[in-house]
C-alpha cells in the first residue's frame, strides 16, 4: 500500500466519522451500493470505520436490469470479499411495464427504475437512513447538499428548508417515516477518489480502464454494445474503439469516452489534463437546466 497524502488522510477520517455517526444515530441504516468507484470507496471506508467488527449494516443495490454485465459480476464478487449482506431491488412494476432506456424518455426511465425503485426498497425494509456516495463537486445543486440530508415521508428534498449543519454536529432526528440520506464523500473530488483508490489499492469495475470495446455512435456520444439488450438500428454497426467510462450508470445512458488510460495512474494523469466534467457522459443531466435539482426534489438519490 502506498503512502497517502495528508489531505487524503483528512478526508478519510472525516468520512469514517460520518459513517460512525450514522451507525450511532439510526436504527436501521443501509449503504446504497451502486457498484461504481464512489461506492467502492464507501465500502472500503465502512470496513475501516467498524474494524475489527464486520460491516454492521447491509448494502442495497437498486438494479434496473440495465447495468453492464461486468458491473453485476463485480458486485457479486466484491460483496463476497467484504463479507457484507446485500439486498438487490428491482422495480418489478416498471420491469413488467417494460420501462427501459431504449424506447422510453430517459427522465421517465430514471424516475421509474431508480427513484421509485429506491423508494420501494427503503419502505419495504423500513430503512431510516441510506448512505450514498454522492460528492458535492459532481453537480451544482449537490454543492448545497447537507452531509445528513433530510427527506420527508414521501422521500422529497426541500432545498430551501435544509437543516443548518454546524461544526460536525449532524442532527439525525427524524419523525415517523421520514428518512435521512447521508453522504460521507461530500468533500471528495473525482481526483481525490482516484488517488485514494490508487493509494489503498481498492478494486474497481474494469470498465473504468481503457480497452478495445464495441461501440456505436449515437447523438454524438459513444454507446457500448454490452449485449443484445441494446437495440441497434439497421444503420448502426458496432466498431471496436479504445474506450473507458468515467462514471457508470445504466448502459445506454452512460457514454464511453475515448481513452488510453489503462491504469489508475493513467486515469489520474488523464483527469489532470481533461477539460470535460465527469457527468458529461451522463445523458440524464443535460435534459434541462437544474435537472438534477428537480430529480432530487422528487427523491432521486
Amino acid at each position: 500500500m502506498k503512502e497517502k497524502s495528508r489531505h487524503l488522510q483528512e478526508l478519510e477520517s472525516e468520512s469514517i466519522y460520518i459513517l460512525r455517526e450514522t451507525i450511532a444515530q439510526f436504527e436501521k441504516p443501509v449503504l446504497l451500493y451502486s457498484i461504481g468507484k464512489d461506492s467502492s470507496v464507501l465500502l472500503h471506508l465502512a470496513k475501516k470505520a467498524f474494524y475489527p467488527a464486520p460491516i454492521p449494516l447491509p448494502l442495497l443495490h437498486i438494479d434496473t436490469a440495465w447495468k453492464f454485465r461486468d458491473m453485476i459480476l463485480f458486485r457479486d464478487d466484491i460483496v463476497k470479499r467484504y463479507g457484507a449482506q446485500l439486498f438487490v431491488h428491482i422495480n418489478e412494476d416498471g420491469r413488467k411495464a417494460n420501462v427501459n432506456p431504449n424506447t422510453c424518455d430517459s427522465a421517465y426511465y430514471t424516475q421509474v427504475m431508480k427513484t421509485e425503485g429506491l423508494r420501494q426498497a427503503l419502505e419495504h425494509h423500513k430503512f431510516d437512513a441510506a448512505i450514498g456516495g454522492a460528492r458535492r463537486d459532481e453537480e451544482k445543486s449537490r454543492a448545497k447538499e447537507r452531509v445528513f440530508s433530510h427527506r420527508t415521508a414521501d422521500h422529497s428534498w426541500d432545498p430551501k428548508n435544509q437543516r443548518p449543519e454546524i461544526w460536525r454536529l449532524y442532527n439525525g432526528h427524524l419523525a415517523v417515516s421520514e428518512t435521512m440520506r447521508i453522504f460521507p464523500l461530500s468533500n471528495w473530488t473525482e481526483l481525490d477518489v482516484w488517488q485514494y483508490i490508487g493509494a489503498e489499492e481498492i478494486p474497481v469495475v474494469p470498465l473504468y480502464f481503457a480497452s478495445e470495446r464495441p461501440v456505436v455512435v449515437r447523438g454524438g456520444t459513444m454507446i457500448m454494445v454490452d449485449d443484445d439488450r441494446l437495440q441497434l438500428s439497421s444503420a448502426e454497426v458496432p466498431e471496436l474503439r479504445r474506450v473507458r467510462f468515467r462514471s457508470l450508470g445504466c448502459y445506454p445512458l452512460t457514454c464511453a469516452v475515448e481513452s488510453n488510460a489503462a491504469s489508475i495512474s493513467d486515469i489520474i494523469e488523464e483527469l489532470k489534463l481533461t477539460r470535460l466534467s465527469e457527468r458529461q457522459g451522463r445523458v440524464i443531466d443535460r435534459d434541462q437546466i437544474s435537472s438534477m435539482e428537480k430529480k432530487k426534489e422528487e427523491g432521486y438519490f
Partner: peptide, 10 residues
C-alpha cells in the same frame, strides 16, 4: 445566494 454552497479546487 441563499444557502451555503461548497466548491472545491486545488
Amino acid at each position: 445566494t441563499i444557502d451555503v454552497a461548497y466548491s472545491y479546487f486545488s
